[in-house]
Amino acid sequence: MITQMKKFIRQDTTLTVLLGLLIFLILLFGSILQDKFFSFDNIQSMGYQIPEFAFLALAMSIAMITGGIDLSVVANANMAGIMAGYVLTGAVFGLNSGMSDLTLVIIAILVALIVATLGGVFNGILIAKFSVPAILATLGTMTFYNGISTAITEGKGVVGFPDNYLSIGTSAPLGIPLVFYIFFIAFAVVAFVMVRTPFGQSIYLYGENRIASLFSGIKNEKMIIKTYALAGFLSGIAAIIMTSRVNSAKYNYGDSYLLQAILVAVLGGINPNGGRGKVTNVIIGILILQILQSAFTLFAFSPYAKRMIFGFMLLLIMVINFIIDKWGARSKSIAKDSEVVPQEAK
C-alpha cells in the first residue's frame, strides 16, 4: 500500500501536489464556511462559473503543450461572441426575416464556432507557415481580433438575445448546469485525444523538440494549424457560454480570463516550454481556482483582493514546482555528471 502510494507520488508529482492542495482547500473552507460552502447554491454556482473560463484554459493548455501560447483566446472568443450576437439580435438577417428563434440560435452557435475556429486557423498559419513565434503571433492577433471587435461595435455591447439562447447558460437539467455537461464532455474528449491519438502524441513530441518531430516525419505545420484551430474552436464554445450567461457580447468582456487561463494551465502542471503536462491535471487546477473564487466571494473579498491572491498563487506554484524539480533532479543525477551535457534544442 505504502509502496504503491510512493510509486503514485513519484509517477505524477504534479497530480499529487494538486490533489493535496484541492483536499486541503476543501477542508479549510469547509470548516470555516461550513454549510455556506457546501450549500447546493454554492456548488451549483460553481458549476455555472467553471465552464466559462475552463474552455479558455483548455485552449491555452494545448497551445502551451506545443511549446507556444495563445494570447488571443479571449479576444477571439469576444470576436466570435459579437458575430454570434449580431446574428441573434437580427442585425444580420433582419428582424422580420421570419426565421424562428431556434434557427437563429443554431446559426448563431455555428457562426461563433466557425469565426473562432477561423481565428485559430489564422494563428496556426502565422505560426506554422510564417514561423512567427507563437507569443508574437497571438499577441498580434489578440490586438487585431480585439481591434475588429472594437471597430465593428464601436466599443458598444451587443445586447438582447432570445430566451432559448440564454437558456444555454442558465438551464440546469437534473440540477446540474447544462454548461457543466458541455465542459465535462469537452474535457473528456480533449484529454482522450491528447493521450490516445497520433494527433495528441504529435503535439507532445513537437512541444518537446520540433526539429526532431520534423525529422520523425510528423507533419508539423498541419499539426500546428490543427492545434490552434482546436484552441480557436474551444474559445468559440467559451464565447457561446459567456454571451448566453450575461445576455450580451462586448469587445472587452472577460479580460481577466487571459491571466486566469495561463494561471490555471501552469497550476495544472503544463510546462510553458512545451512537451509536458496533462489536460486532466488542468481540470484539478480549474477546480482549485474555482473553489478559491467561490470562497472569496463568500468571504466578500473584493475582486482586487482576488487578483492579488491569484497572482500570489501563481508565483507560489511556480516556486513549489521549481523546488520539486530541483530536488528530483538531484536524486537523479547519479553518474551522469561527466557525460557530454546535451545542449537543449531551442
Partner: peptide, 27 residues
C-alpha cells in the same frame, strides 16, 4: 529576486507579480 532565485520563466513570474502588485495596491 523572484526571477533570479527561482529560475522562473520571466513571463510567468511577472504575470504573477503584475496581479500581485495591482491587487496589493487596490486592496
Amino acid at each position: 529576486l523572484i526571477i533570479h532565485k527561482f529560475h522562473l520563466p520571466t513571463m510567468i513570474a511577472t504575470l504573477g507579480t503584475s496581479s500581485l502588485f495591482s491587487g496589493i495596491m487596490t486592496t
